[in-house]
Amino acid sequence: MIKGILFDKDGTLIEFNSLWINLTKKIVHDIIKQYNIDEKNTIPMLEVLGIQANDTLVSNSLIASETLYDSAQALAPFINESTETLYKLLDEMYYVGTCQHPDAIKPIGDVKKLFQELHNKNIRVGIVTADQYNVTAFTLQYLGLMPYVDFIATADTYPKKPSPEALHAFCNKFNLQQSDVIHIGDTKVDMLFGQNTKQPVGVLSGTSDLATLQQYSTTVLPTIHDIVHHFRL
């Protein structure tokens, strides 16, 4: 019996490309301008993050599945800056950019209705994301999801996925067994994290294709809205 569900955020609850590609391009442009470096670095900086010249996203790339600190570490050599300093700058830039353009936060279907349904069935709901807490909290509040979310784990509050520490904290908080919980996400990292639960569940609404997700999970669904029927919740 499933008593708790941990959801990834980007590509799972909200559309990935509508928010992250344009925002990341703007931030890279602003960094280049702020540090007065050659604009020829724009394309390689975006590519190291996972955005190709035609604005397509590389599956399981840095911005698709890793943390902001990982992005800072990858970008720091381009501008001769410390990772720690750039990490703080990126944290502010992404938060401000998200708050300034909340219209770019597009839920995948009626997420609020789904969360209300899970809440009414006494299923604990948690978010485990590679994103920062500030952007995550703003996103959940903007979408009206916060009243139905029991637990939030972000890359700046817990060790990043696939470390199981966020799962352990979720289970301890609500007296659950790991076998009572499933994790739903759209990347390889999500599937590896989910292997610590009853089972990882892949969704095709994000940045990975069916073949990739099926390497790590026997359950791959179109979106999160298929879980109620699939698991008979």
Rank of each mutant, 00 (worst) to 15 (best):
P102L: 04
A104G: 03
P107Q: 07
G109A: 07
V111N: 00
V111K: 00
K112L: 12
K112T: 03
F115E: 03
E117P: 01
N120E: 15
N120L: 11
K121I: 10
R124Y: 14
V125F: 03
G126D: 06
I127N: 04
V128D: 12
A130F: 11
D131C: 06
Q132P: 00
N134S: 13
N134A: 11
V135P: 00
T136M: 00
T136S: 07
A137T: 01
A137Y: 04
T139L: 01
L140D: 01
L140M: 07
L143Q: 05
L145E: 01
L145M: 08
M146A: 14
P147L: 10
F151T: 03
T154E: 03
T154D: 06
D156W: 12
D156F: 11
K161G: 10
K161L: 10
S163N: 15
E165Q: 15
A166M: 08
L167D: 14
L167P: 13
H168S: 13
F170N: 08
C171D: 10
N172D: 15
K173V: 00
K173M: 13
F174T: 03
N175T: 09
L176A: 06
Q177L: 11
V181W: 06
I182G: 03
G185M: 10
G185S: 06
T187H: 06
T187N: 09
K188F: 07
K188H: 10
V189T: 15
V189P: 01
D190T: 12
D190R: 05
M191T: 09
G194Y: 13
Q195H: 14
K198N: 08
Q199T: 02
V201H: 09
S205K: 13
T207C: 10
S208C: 13
S208Y: 02
L210Q: 13
T212Q: 02
L213A: 09
Q214N: 14
Q215G: 13
S217E: 09
T223Y: 08
H225D: 08
